[in-house]
Design a protein around this nucleic acid. Structure first.
Lengths: 256, 256
DNA sequence: AAACACTGGTGTTAATAATGAACCGATGCG
DNA sequence: CGCATCGGTTCATTATTAACACCAGTGTTT
C-alpha cells in the first residue's frame, strides 16, 4: 500500500541509540524487501532526508531535516517558545520536563530539559510517545479532537511495560479521568521506575495539539510531590498554549 | 517516476515567506494532479512531516520534523558545533555568517548568524543554495567528491540573477579558481547587491560536505575587506571541519 | 440572485511504477 | 576453505498510482 508512507516510516527506525543503519538491517526491521528499501532510501537521499556514510555505507538522518526544522521554527517558533517554559518547569519541580506535539498519529518529543538532580529521568531525544502508554499521550488524547480520541481508543495498544494499558477497557478510564482532572498521571506504563505527569497543550481550535510533562523517578512520587508538580505544571501548560497561539477552552481547569 | 521523491519535493515549496500552502496551490506549483498531491500530503501527514491547519485547511511543515531534527542533533550535533563558530565569525567580520550542508544535490542552509550592522545581509532561514549560484556552492563543488563535482558541472544551471553562471564554460572556471585558492567569492550571482565568500567544510572522507560563508553588501566589498574576511573565515572553516569530525586534506590551504 | 471562478476533496479505470525473488561480487569469520 | 552476511543490481509480474471528471462549498462579480 501507500509507498510514500512506508518509505517515511523507515525514518522511525533511527533513534538516539541507533542513529545509523545498514541496508539489510533496515530491510529486516521494516519487513520490506532490500531492493525496495534501497530505492526508498535513494529517494529520500535526493531530498536530504537521509544520507549515507561514504565509507561504512550506513544510512542516517540527513542534513535536509535540519534545514526543514529551521524553516519551521522560523514560521512557527515552537522550540523557542517551549524551551524557556520547560526550563522554568524543570527548576521549579526539580524534575525532568519535556514537551511533545502531535506528529502523525502519535506524539513526537520536540523539547526537553533535564533535572539537575543526580537521580533524574533521562529523556531520550526525539522519542515517539505512544498515546496510550505515556502521561503525555493520555493527557493529549483526553483533550484531542474527538475524532482523534476515538481513533486512539480504538487503535491497537501495544504493551510497552507490564503496566501499559493494552485494551480499551483499561485505557479509556485513564482518558476519562484525565478529562475531568485536566491532567494525566502515568506510573511506569512506558518505562519502568518512571512516573509521568502531563497536561495538554491546546491548539487554536481548542483541541489538544500536544502535551507538556514532568517525569520523575517513581520512588520520589508522593501525594505532596504530585501536588507541587501540578502547581508548576498548570501555569506552564497555560503558557505553552498561549505562547503557541493556542486557545484554552473556557471550562478547562487542572485540579487534583 | 519515483513517487517518493516527487512527494518529498513538495516540501521544498514551503519557505520562510510561504510557510503554508493550500492544496490547489501546491498542485499548481508542482505540476502534479490535485488528487495525487492530496494523497502524498496524507502520507506525509501520517509521519508528521506535514500537518494541516484544521480551520484553514492549509498545509505546513509538521512537528515530526522537529522530532527528527532533535534526533539528528543528538547523534551528530551539527548546529551546536557550528553556531558558536558562526557567532565568532560574524563578530570578527561584522558581517552575516552562515553554514550549509549537502542535502540531496544541493546545499541546505542549516545555521546562520546575522551581522549587527544596520546595513547587513539577511539570510532567509532554511534556504536551498544552488551549487552554481552561490559562493558556498562553488566552494563546496570545488572540494566535493569528483563524482558529485562532475554532476554539478554537467547539470543544468538555472539563471538566478544576471550574474549567475548558466553554462559549464562560465561555471567551471569559478570552480577551478576555488580549487586553487581554497575559497570561493561570488558577486551577486544569487542575490543582487550581495557578495559571498565561502570555504568548504570537509567530511571524514576528505571531501567537502558543506560550506561556511560570509555574506556582505556588495557596496562594502573591497580588497581589504576580502582579506580581513578571509583571515577570519579560514580558521572558522578549519574549526567547523574538525568540530564535525571531518578530515582536512593535507594540501588544502586558503590563500588569496 | 445568478453566473462564475475558485477552493478542498472524492471516486473510478487505464497505465505506470513498485515489488521481490534470484543473482552478483565483496567482505568477514570460524 | 566454506559459510554467512553485506550492499547492490536486474527483471518479469502485479498491484499501486495517477489523472480525469465530478461533487459540494465559498466568495466575487455582475
Amino acid at each position: 500500500m501507500r509507498t510514500v508512507e512506508k518509505a517515511l516510516k523507515l525514518l522511525n527506525f533511527f533513534t538516539e541509540q541507533q542513529p545509523e543503519h545498514g541496508l539489510s538491517n533496515l530491510a529486516r526491521l521494516s519487513g520490506i524487501d532490500k531492493a525496495t528499501v534501497l530505492r526508498m532510501l535513494g529517494d529520500m537521499e535526493a531530498t536530504g532526508l537521509v544520507e549515507q556514510d561514504t565509507r561504512s555505507r550506513k544510512w542516517r538522518l540527513g542534513a535536509g531535516i535540519l534545514r526543514l526544522a529551521r524553516l519551521r521554527e522560523a514560521a512557527f517558533p515552537v522550540t523557542r517558545v517551549l524551551t524557556p517554559i520547560l526550563e522554568r518547569l524543570a527548576t521549579e519541580t526539580g524534575e525532568t520536563a519535556h514537551a511533545s506535539l502531535l506528529s502523525g498519529r502519535e506524539l513526537g518529543s520536540v523539547a526537553a530539559v533535564e533535572s539537575t538532580r543526580s537521580n533524574r529521568v533521562i529523556m531520550e531525544a526525539g522519542h515517539i510517545l505512544p498515546l496510550h502508554a505515556t502521561a503525555s499521550g493520555v493527557a493529549f488524547t483526553a483533550f484531542a479532537n474527538p475524532e482523534i480520541r476515538e481513533r486512539a481508543l480504538a487503535g491497537d495498544l501495544p504493551q510497552v511495560t507490564p503496566a501499559t494499558p493494552t485494551t480499551r477497557e483499561t485505557f479509556e478510564p485513564l482518558v476519562r479521568e484525565a478529562m475531568t482532572k485536566g491532567y494525566a498521571l502515568s506510573d511506569q506504563a512506558f518505562e519502568a521506575e518512571v512516573t509521568g505527569i502531563a497536561a495538554p497543550i491546546f491548539g487554536p481550535d481548542g483541541f489538544a495539539c500536544g502535551a507538556i510533562s514532568v517525569a520523575t523517578p517513581s520512588s520520589r512520587m508522593t501525594a505532596d510531590h504530585v501536588s507541587s508538580i501540578l502547581s508548576a505544571l498548570a501555569p506552564a501548560a497555560r503558557l505553552a498554549t498561549l505562547g503557541l497561539g493556542g486557545h484554552i477552552p473556557s471550562h478547562h481547569k487542572i485540579a487534583a
